[in-house]
């Protein structure tokens, strides 16, 4: 994600979400209906779309993360803890999945999609998801131990949702996918929104070692100028003595990642991972940003219902 979450979930909200989802997950006893759903695609190549399956997981992690915005750091206990509610569900080609582990936003990180075509080695989906989380400068400053004049009085940045075409290619122990998305930052009625293209690609290689799954990942993402400018640009009405006018250019993000999972029991797994992100150098020219390299580390447990 381009920008880290800034609206902190309270424990109360997280627990409420957890209890509601826990109720619905235990109230339903069927795990998966293993019916086959073969739909002809062409004369000789039937495609098999996902049948009804679901899986609900709860993830409790300790996360050490850096944030792009100037002088913003993790300060509170709950900044380090993430409770993730992960739901995967599919039916006749439609699916919801939260396997991108942005657990701090709970189910807000889910992808809703439809499998246009599924072939042996590749797949084409249409996806609806939140690509960029917004942030509220005033809320951020409240949580910080020092004042941040670069962010004080800045307008809120809303999340950007997008509709994308996703091409996935499957290898024996690897997957590559690329999303071409039209993203739009939600208009809050202040005539201050943005629309642009995001091209997000990721390659993940699985190395099984005994009972461990070790994933090596690399990603490259392109963000349209309008979107980058919306999140880290400074408009004329936002200029202050600490915050000059700034128009941002388009940007890139490269990522390297290692993620490992180990089963502790039939319901619990141990998970750990580290991601290194490199953003375009240009973004540091924004008065709102003071770094373009982020290291994020997580360690935690996952409960599978």
């Amino acid at each position: 994600m381009l920008f880290q979450k800034f609206k902190r979930f309270t424990l109360k909200h997280l627990l409420s979400s957890f209890l509601i989802l826990f109720y619905f997950s235990v109230a339903t006893t069927s795990y998966a209906a293993q019916e086959s759903n073969n739909m002809p695609n062409s004369a000789n190549s039937p495609i098999v779309k996902d049948t009804f399956e679901w899986q609900f997981m709860v993830d409790l992690s300790l996360v050490d993360t850096q944030i792009l915005l100037t002088d913003v750091e993790q300060t509170e206990l709950w900044d380090y803890f993430q409770l993730g509610l992960l739901l995967d569900m599919s039916y006749k080609g439609f699916f919801i999945q939260t396997n991108s582990r942005r657990s701090s936003t709970a189910l807000g990180s889910a992808e809703f999609g439809y499998q246009i075509t599924v072939q042996k080695d590749w797949q084409l989906d249409i996806i609806l998801k939140a690509y960029i989380n917004g942030y509220s400068p005033d809320e951020i400053i409240k949580d910080q131990e020092q004042d941040i004049p670069e962010l004080a009085g800045l307008n809120d940045r809303n999340p950007a949702g997008g509709i994308a075409l996703r091409y996935s290619h499957f290898f024996d122990d690897a997957i590559f996918y690329i999303d071409v998305a039209a993203a739009h930052a939600i208009d809050d009625g202040q005539d201050d929104d943005a629309t642009g293209v995001i091209i997000d690609s990721f390659y993940s290689y699985l190395l099984p070692y005994r009972n461990w799954d070790i994933y090596f990942g690399a990603g490259l993402t392109y963000y349209d100028q309008a979107l980058v400018d919306y999140y880290i640009g400074v408009d004329a009405d936002e200029v202050s003595s600490s915050r000059p006018l700034y128009n941002a250019d388009s940007g890139f993000r490269a990522q390297l990642e290692i993620y490992a999972q180990y089963p502790l029991s039939q319901s619990w797994s141990f998970n750990t991972g580290i991601t290194q992100s490199f953003y375009s150098n240009d973004i540091k020219q924004s008065p709102l940003v003071d770094k373009n390299k982020l290291t994020q580390f997580m360690v935690g447990v996952l409960y599978v219902f």
Partner: peptide
């Protein structure tokens, strides 16, 4: 021998951040 995740046709995309 038991398992955490049931065998599925879905191919997962793990991505951390």
């Amino acid at each position: 021998v038991s398992w955490l995740h049931k065998k599925t046709t879905r191919r997962r995309r793990w991505r951390l951040f």
